[in-house]
Design a protein around this nucleic acid. Sequence first.
DNA 1: TTGTAAGCGTTATCAT
DNA 2: ATGATAACGCTTACAA
Lengths: 335, 335
Amino acid sequence: MDAVNLKNLAKQLNLSVSTVSKAFRGSYDISEKTRERILSLARELNYQPNPLASSLRTQKSHTIAVIIPEIANNFFTLAINGIESVAQELGYHVLIYITHEDEAKEISFTRLLQSGRVDGVLMSLSKGTRDFSHINRLREMALPLVFFDRIYEEYPTTRITTNDFESGYKATKHLIDQGARRIAHLFLSGNLSIAQKRKQGYLQALDDHKIKRAEKLMVACGNDADENKKLIKACLKKEKPDAIFSSFEKLALLSYEACAELKLRIPEDVKIISFSNLETAPLLNPSLTTITQPAFEIGEQAARALFAALKKNRTAIPDKHIVVDSTLVRRKSTE
Amino acid sequence: MDAVNLKNLAKQLNLSVSTVSKAFRGSYDISEKTRERILSLARELNYQPNPLASSLRTQKSHTIAVIIPEIANNFFTLAINGIESVAQELGYHVLIYITHEDEAKEISFTRLLQSGRVDGVLMSLSKGTRDFSHINRLREMALPLVFFDRIYEEYPTTRITTNDFESGYKATKHLIDQGARRIAHLFLSGNLSIAQKRKQGYLQALDDHKIKRAEKLMVACGNDADENKKLIKACLKKEKPDAIFSSFEKLALLSYEACAELKLRIPEDVKIISFSNLETAPLLNPSLTTITQPAFEIGEQAARALFAALKKNRTAIPDKHIVVDSTLVRRKSTE
DNA sequence: TTGTAAGCGTTATCAT
DNA sequence: ATGATAACGCTTACAA
């Protein structure tokens, strides 16, 4: 069966291509009667306009790209859900690109997006990103870009995060209030601003409570889970922390495993709190105290910020930092 | 800055558009010297070919669509990971569509894909799908389609699932071996073939062990979590099962909550086994015995099946059912 | 109200 | 080895 297109329809109706085209776009200089004829034949033949042709012509793809570091991660999964729901509502299509925390991939993805494939980009930086020229290039190309969570702080666009400093502070203070004094901090190595903010919150809380900072209690983790678990175990064994504040969910889960393997009891020997969107946090053994980010909402807001700019036809996106609050949920792991 | 395109490059080099175009496609009737000139200017100006134009011309979008019922779900997250890794390797782009188990959305998505936007589709049916005409239409349009997990059994294409019947049987038998006799089964209402297969495995296992089937022990769940929890609690209270076999991860988590609320101990009062790709299954209280599907591999294989067909230029995809095995992982919830 | 024709940025065929 | 030109399917001035 030959694809049905405008030319096709036009011929069968003895009309011109442009008349048919206009009918679909609800132009009011088409008579009610011919419009009816056109639409009815279109329905019958199940006509679908070719989006490539139309995008090429209008310079709008009605598609956005979402670039994230990983997807087997509850935060990003929820964020995508938020993004997708807005995209669906507004009739946009969503391309997904996963960098696996790799700067080289991030660079090559941004390259691919530079020529009309998408109208805009939502992005969360990968841990490995050290140089930002690929991102600045997007600005030169006037490709609208909104950051969420793992933002590029200096980039003049809308950037959405949670209150990371305050949350880091609150998490640490919570541990202190629960009696902890040797608090380890697990974070992801690299340049991520959110990791730094959380760490600063941690340090500030220590300072405010006259607890001495100790480099050895701050564990920079990488990409490899086994490696990370070793780092955590080493810290637990050598430094004997009485609590752990983990900046990233997966590091908390590794801590649970590490504690089990070292026969350390949670929370008796080690209290644990972590940034996390884990649905099963309440069901863990013991249930995990979390700093929970409103991930769906973050995705949603990022998408809305982007689409608002797209509607206004490539208006620059407001240069501002939107902060939504995380919530601390107390559970057994810090009791 | 004006977008740099072929015409643009050609003018600056005093060459024709077609020469420049050929240079990029490594045509060998371009002299080494001019090719060098072209590529070097392209690099300098950071030229990126416009994929819309090129797709329109070649009738290949180098893009696939993935249609799934939900994304806040470890199985689908892992499957996407598998799909995306293959797509990345082969230079394809991935569009994501989430039906939220809604047939209407599934229909409208398949519509959108009918006119050149994508070269092929990977799909897992939504629970709500009762009519398949929208899917059959994709065949009429000769749009390559591969199913994974929630397959449309009658559709002549490659369909990838786990060994659902056997897994259902094995799960049930495991509960029986552990001493259970009143085994409830939680599944998703609707037409999903995998749900039916799993249930058949369950029933067969009961039959083989001379345990009487009981309608009231078979709980059909819907989309609403609260509603589902009520159903599960009602079953636990009225039917007093000594074990639960859950076909879907989220139903198992609700069962944990239900048991907690009813002060039922797992596994002493109720043993639980579930299909699940939960990373935290070993960390739950108690750890959850699972039937784990090789989700990443399923996604990967589905993608490979699709791309193989695409490479051969719209050859029909082999009509076959690929079965990969799930594994039963024994943990405390069924001890 | 309808039609003509140019053009979006490519690729591919056919000349030169 | 290079170039002119016609598509791909659509939108949009502008003309009729």
